[in-house]
Write a protein that binds this DNA or RNA. Structure first.
Lengths: 201, 201
DNA sequence: CCAATTAGTGCAACTGATGTACTTTTGAAG
DNA sequence: CTTCAAAAGTACATCAGTTGCACTAATTGG
C-alpha cells in the first residue's frame, strides 16, 4: 500500500524532513519508554521532548502503541516466503514452525538493545496485545499462500484455520517454562492434522 | 474467589442494595447501548441516567466494556463440563466442537433480545476484543481438564495448545460466508492432530 | 452504643485522542 | 521569480475513559 522508506527513492526535502520528524519522535519515545516504562511516559511528554506538538505526533502515529513498532518492516513477506520457498518435502506447518522458532522466539541471543526492546513489549500488556493484533492482520495473506501452495481452493476454511492457528501459536508458549518446546508442540498438533486433511482432499 | 450472586446465600440489606445498584447500572447501560450504539453513549451519561456518580459506576465495573458482560455467569463450567461429561467414545476436540457450535454460534435462533445483544457485541470492535480476552482466560482451566481427561501430564504443552486453539476457533469463522462450516473445519484440524498425538503418547 | 467497614458522593485531575482554525514551509506551475 | 495550493506543523480547546482524594452516610459486628 504505502512504499515509504525505500532508500532508493529520491525524496525531496519535504519528505526527508517528514521522515526525520517521524524518526525523532519514535526515537524519543522508545528511549523514554526503555528508561521509565511504557505506562509511565505520557504522550505530552514525548511530544515535548521531541519538540513537536501532540497534534503532530498523532499525525505520524495513530495511537500510542504505534510509537514502539515504527520499524515494522515487512514481516509479512518473510512469513509468506517461509511458506512458498520451503525446502522440498517439508510440510507447510513445519515451515511455519521453523519460521516461528527462528523469527519470533529469538529474543534471548541478540544484543542488549533487542533484548530490552522485547522485554518492554513483553512486559506491557497494551503492547503485547497491539503486537498480536498486528500479527494477526496477516491471516488472510497467509491463508491465501497456504491455499496456493497446497492446491486447495482459496475459499477452503481449513486454510484460514491453519493460518490463524499458526499465527496464534507463539501466544500458546506464554507462561510455559520452555516456550520453544510449547511452540513446537502446538505446531505438531497442526502438522499432523494438516497432513491428514490434505491427503484426504 | 468471590461468591457473589449465589441466590441461596442470605445476604444482608447492604449486599442486596449493592447488587441492586450494580444491576441498575448494567441495565441502564445495556438499554442505552442497544438504543444508540456502544460508542455513542458515554460513561457520564450512563451514570447520570442510572442516578449514580461515575466514581460509583467504576467501583462496580472496572472498565466500560464490563458493563455489557454483567451476566457472564459461568461459561467456564459449561466449557469444562463439555469436556468431562462428553459421550463415550467422543474425542475431546469433538466435544469442544459440539460445544462451540451449540453455544457460541447459536445467535440467530434465540429471541430478539439475544439477537440484538449479539449484534451489538459483534459490531463493536472494543466489545469483541474484550469478549475474546475474557474467553481466553479459561485457557488454563481448560488445559488442565484436557490433561486430566486424556491422561497426559498436566505440564504437557500440547494440552495448552489444544485449549488455546479451541478457544480461538470461533474467531477463525469471522469473515467466512459459512461460519459454522469454518468452525467445524478448524476443529477437524485439531481433532485429527490430537488423535495422532495422543495415540503416540 | 461504639467503632470499624464500606457503599457511595462530588470534584478535580490525568491521559489518550480528536477537531478546528491558523501559520509556515515547500514544490511546482506559470 | 512569483504565485498558489498542498502539506506539515502549531496552538488551543475539548472529549472520553479513568483515577485519586477527601468526605458522608449507612451498616454491621462486638
Amino acid at each position: 500500500m504505502d512504499d515509504t522508506g525505500n532508500s532508493a527513492a529520491p525524496m525531496g526535502r519535504r519528505e526527508r524532513k517528514k521522515a526525520a520528524t517521524r524518526q525523532a519522535i519514535a526515537d524519543t519515545a522508545l528511549r523514554l519508554f526503555l528508561e521509565r516504562g511504557y505506562d509511565d511516559v505520557g504522550i505530552r511528554e514525548i511530544a515535548d521532548v521531541a519538540d513537536v506538538s501532540t497534534t503532530t505526533l498523532f499525525k505520524h502515529f495513530p495511537v500510542k502503541e504505534a510509537l514502539v513498532f515504527d520499524e515494522d518492516a515487512d514481516q509479512e513477506s518473510g512469513l509468506l516466503a517461509a511458506v512458498r520457498e520451503r525446502p522440498e518435502g517439508q510440510s507447510i506447518p513445519a515451515a511455519l514452525r521453523e519460521h516461528a522458532l527462528r523469527y519470533r522466539m529469538a529474543a534471548a541471543d541478540g544484543d542488549a538493545r533487542f533484548t530490552a526492546f522485547f522485554d518492554l513489549v513483553d512486559s506491557t500488556p497494551a503492547l503485547r496485545d497491539y503486537a498480536q493484533a498486528m500479527w494477526l492482520r496477516h491471516t488472510d495473506a497467509l491463508a491465501q499462500a497456504i491455499a496456493e501452495e497446497s492446491g486447495l481452493p482459496e475459499s477452503e476454511p481449513a486454510c484460514t484455520a491453519l493460518a490463524h492457528f499458526a499465527l496464534e501459536a507463539p501466544r500458546v508458549a506464554r507462561g510455559h517454562d520452555d516456550p520453544r518446546l510449547a511452540v513446537a508442540r502446538a505446531f505438531d498438533l497442526l502438522e499432523i492434522g494438516w497432513r491428514a486433511l490434505v491427503s484426504r482432499g
